[in-house]
Design a protein around this nucleic acid. Structure first.
Length: 116
DNA sequence: CTGGTGACCATTA
DNA sequence: TTAATGGCCACCA
């Protein structure tokens, strides 16, 4: 129906879907999300989708960072500090504004299967 | 239709 | 280590 302003395409939904699966205490990169959403090489789209992510969708958007392990926002923006605070509250550790991806990156394979 | 933009990324120097 | 470059393509004016 076109009466409803279609701000998000099915593509966005796919992206939001993956983002929703990131567990607390872990992070994923934009590229990683793109791959899991079946959109390889479309990291930028993930960023775009999150940027325009509507408020009524409750997403763990703060768990998505760039491949360098840093927050992709300007420190001048309030959302930067918000993201950082949220991550820290989940146990993520920042070292010089950088997160150790080796340690905190979400591994979707062990999402549900405990293969300890 | 066209052109500019971007919460990105891998590669190269 | 940082900096520059090309690629990617949905979205928007």
């Amino acid at each position: 129906m076109n009466t409803e302003k279609r701000k998000f395409s099915q593509l966005y939904q796919r992206i939001y879907d993956v983002v929703r699966r990131i567990p607390s205490g872990h992070v994923a990169t934009y590229g990683q999300i793109a791959n899991l959403a079946g959109l390889p090489g479309q990291a930028r789209l993930v960023g775009y989708a999150l940027h325009s992510s509507p408020d009524h969708l409750v997403l763990p958007w703060h768990r998505v960072i760039n491949a360098r392990g840093t927050i992709s926002l300007s420190e001048m923006e309030a959302s930067y500090h918000e993201q950082r605070a949220l991550l820290q509250s989940e146990g993520i550790i920042f070292t010089n504004d950088r997160i150790d991806l080796q340690r905190f990156r979400w591994n979707p394979d062990m999402d549900g299967n405990a293969l300890d």
